[in-house]
């Protein structure tokens, strides 16, 4: 990828005040870790390659970073969709964010505002196929009996330590108090075991139905290797099929989870 152009653009938006901070990636002994650049002269630290998987849009929820808005965020298409969706959910305003767009195959898209980001997504990334490996595994799991499927997930969730790295990594998990922390009443068992783990992971997946842009950051952040994307992709696919919506392409769109229609095809909701 043309990292020099990325660096030049980062320096330019900092120098002319379009952004007060650029959030991108840097190298640390071979690891790709986030870089928070406030000085145009440090833009040379930035780099980008396929190992940069964290969804940096998650930093928009961090209180200490609000004073650095507008921020420019290095974003691949799934991350761009997160940003458009955050705008649709009224979590960021157009003037809060700039995008330094990169494609999944290392093409650099330049400096984009949210409108231009949505336009680019619709023009070039309207068809973002689900990860074929994931789809294959989903088919395998779908073919299981309910008992086998329940057994599979029980085994996966048994490893969960309730560190909530998945929640922290996700830009869409921005609730000031997460349902897992509500204790009047206690909805979800606090024990890192059994039904509490099951409930936590399934409820989080449901809260992301029609909101997940399949960036994969939650699964990548999970220290225990729980295949969270299997859940997220199933739900994203269901939302597409049932509601005809692919999220993160339209900042004006009503969120699926937060809207209803008179012609909803479920009787009970009318």
């Amino acid at each position: 990828m043309d990292v020099d152009r990325l660096r030049q653009d980062a320096a330019a938006v900092l120098a002319d005040g379009r952004a007060r901070m650029v959030i991108g990636f840097r190298d640390r002994a071979g690891d790709r870790v986030p870089a928070f650049i406030t000085d145009a002269e440090q833009a040379g630290e930035l780099l980008y390659d396929e190992a940069c998987r964290q969804n940096l849009a998650a930093y928009l929820k961090k209180a200490e970073l609000k004073r650095f808005r507008p921020v420019a965020i290095v974003a691949r298409p799934a991350v761009m969709r997160s940003l458009v969706l955050l705008a649709a959910e009224a979590q960021v305003a157009d003037e809060d964010v700039l995008v330094l767009g990169v494609s999944d195959d290392q093409e650099y898209h330049g400096i984009l505002d949210l409108a231009a980001t949505a336009a680019l997504l619709n023009e070039k990334y309207a068809e973002m196929p689900h990860d074929p490996d994931l789809v294959k595994r989903i088919e395998e799991i779908s073919a299981m009996t309910p008992e086998e499927r329940s057994g599979f997930w029980t085994e996966q969730f048994a490893r969960c330590t309730r560190c909530y790295a998945c929640r922290a990594a996700c830009p869409m998990c921005y609730c000031t108090q997460c349902i897992v922390e509500k204790n009047v009443p206690q909805w979800i068992s606090t024990a890192a075991a059994g039904h509490g783990n099951y409930a936590w992971n399934i409820i989080r997946a449901f809260h992301l139905a029609g909101r997940c842009t399949e960036c994969g950051a939650c699964e990548a952040a999970c220290p225990q290797g729980i295949p969270l994307m299997l859940l997220n992709v199933v739900l994203a696919r269901d939302v597409e099929e049932e509601f005809g919506v692919k999220v993160g392409y339209d900042a004006e769109a009503e969120p699926v989870i937060g809207s209803w229609r008179e012609d909803d095809n479920e009787d009970f909701i009318r």
Binding site: A58, A165, A168, A169
Partner: peptide, 8 residues
């Protein structure tokens, strides 16, 4: 700056 506040 980079910490997102999980318990990992």
């Amino acid at each position: 700056l980079a910490c997102l506040g999980c318990g990992a």
